[in-house]
Write a protein that binds this DNA or RNA. Structure first.
Length: 420
RNA sequence: GUGGGCGUAGCUCAACGGUUAGAGCAUCGGACUGUGGCUCCGAGGGCUGGGGGUUCAAAUCCCCUCGCUCACCCCA
């Protein structure tokens, strides 16, 4: 047996029904906020990711699916979506549009050890806004994301925000923190001793009780950012209040991608295991320029599809299957007429299935039952002789003969079609 | 890359080192040739993840390997 490769999963119908529901909700919500869909390639030049995400990040250093194609060019399966959207924005000179707001959805690839809510091929729904560095954009985009969660009937998630400052003030904070940490180096956990140089911000995010204790009175980034960044952050909070969104401030929240500036955020749940973020993102004001465009600001987020689906299942959000009509034809003549009816029903928008007559009526009824059919239609010689068909309600067990002519119209009044 | 837990039928799980590896659910067939759900009867389905070793004898003990899973790391 040939199996799928590690961390690459088949999404089966039970799951795809939920995924389609999520996607449909997302498309509708994003549309009302003025976002349009962009479809970006799955493969990009490796350089795009190393330059945007950051050469020293784990993603670029050890998690990318990178290979040489037949032209000896280094290509990479996208580990995230933002870089590609930014590239497309620059490449197609989309900065001429007054509203540069895009959303995308699709698979991403990272070579990591799979665990709960983390796979090597995983799906994200993301959105990006370009060209406006107003703090209202941050709040408005967060409002959109939270509205999507509202629409999906998902509560029990929480929004945490932070500011990482800009390219002027963050290095100063990093330095300050490094000095603080160096003095306590011996007391930190093994991981964090290594992190002091590699990624000092990570230390204040460490889960080890020891490190939490030690970093209690470490300098906070929010006390260290510059005046402009501080004003921006205060305004984001002000606008979030105007959009009536609740949040908490977490000055210890760190993001793994180098391009983030100022506002960053996470939406987390305690139902997700160790990978507790269902969505995350932030502002990236230097990225467009870094990738060769004008000095254009950006703000965006990505939602983890598998994690979101997990939460919806946890919350018991079961999607009702659409009602089905099951046709049973008895005998050759009846089968011919049943096929005609089957086609007519489908073309009228009903979900219709038909049994196989050599199975016998009893077994066909069983199949109808197992499929969860709402209505069974039975056509035999008796019915055929009178141009009628037996209509059985599978819930109540009641049945009646009705005229074949006008059947589809009649069924519509029974209200068994999907509610629009 | 590191560590823990687990691999027996499609699924959930039994089986002290000792008959032909079982049960429930699911599937298929029958009781019931024009009527589903309930009940009863029957059937199919297993290289016990793979390889090696110990033993008269291994699903069971040992070693290796692969896979799944959770966690670290990291992240959506």
């Amino acid at each position: 047996m040939i199996s799928s490769i590690r961390g690459f999963n088949d999404i089966l119908s039970e799951e795809t029904i939920l995924w389609q529901h999520i996607e449909e909700c997302a498309r509708n919500v994003f549309k009302t906020y003025g976002f349009s869909e962009i479809r970006i390639p799955i493969l990009e030049r490796t350089e795009l990711f190393s330059r945007s995400i950051g050469n020293t990040t784990d993603i670029v250093e050890k998690e990318m699916y990178t290979f040489l194609d037949r032209n000896n060019e280094s290509l990479t399966l996208r580990p995230e979506g933002t870089a590609s959207v930014v590239r497309a924005y620059i490449e197609h000179k989309l900065y001429n549009s007054p509203t540069a707001k895009f959303y995308y959805l699709g698979p991403m690839f990272r070579y990591e050890r799979p665990q709960k809510g983390r796979y090597r091929q995983f799906y994200q729904i993301g959105a990006e806004v370009f060209g406006i560095d107003e703090p209202r954009v941050d709040a408005e985009t967060l409002d959109m994301l939270l509205f999507l969660f509202n629409e999906l009937k998902l509560d029990n998630v929480k929004l945490e925000i932070n500011s990482l400052g800009c390219k002027e003030c963050r290095p100063l904070y990093k330095q300050k923190l490094k000095i603080f940490l160096s003095n306590k180096k011996e007391e930190l956990c093994e991981n964090c001793q290594r992190r002091i140089d590699a990624n000092p911000l990570r230390v204040i995010d460490c889960k080890s009780q020891k490190c939490i204790e030690i970093t209690k009175d470490a300098p906070s980034i929010l006390d260290s950012i510059c005046g402009n960044c501080k004003t921006h952050f205060d305004d984001v909070k002000k606008y979030l209040a105007l959009f009536d969104r609740k949040y908490s401030i977490n000055p210890r929240m760190v993001r793994g991608l180098d391009y983030y500036t100022r506002t960053t955020f996470e939406i987390t749940s305690n139902k997700l295991g160790a990978q507790n973020a269902v969505a995350a993102g932030g502002r990236y004001d230097g990225l467009v320029k870094e990738l060769g465009g004008h000095d254009t600001s950006g703000f965006g987020f990505a939602i983890g599809m598998e994690r979101l689906a997990l939460l919806l299942k946890e919350a018991g959000g079961i999607i009702e299957p659409e009602p089905t009509i099951f046709l049973i034809g008895i005998g050759e003549k009846a089968e011919i007429e049943a096929i005609r009816i089957l086609k007519e029903l489908r073309e009228s928008g009903f979900i219709a299935e038909m049994g196989y007559q050599n199975k016998g009526i009893k077994n066909q009824m069983k199949i109808a039952d197992k499929l969860g059919a709402r209505i069974a239609l039975i056509l035999g010689d008796d019915e055929l002789a009178n141009n009628e068909i037996t209509l059985k309600d599978m819930k109540t067990g009641e049945q009646d003969r009705v005229k074949i002519e006008g059947l589809a119209t009649g069924l519509k009044t029974l209200n068994i079609k999907k509610q629009a």
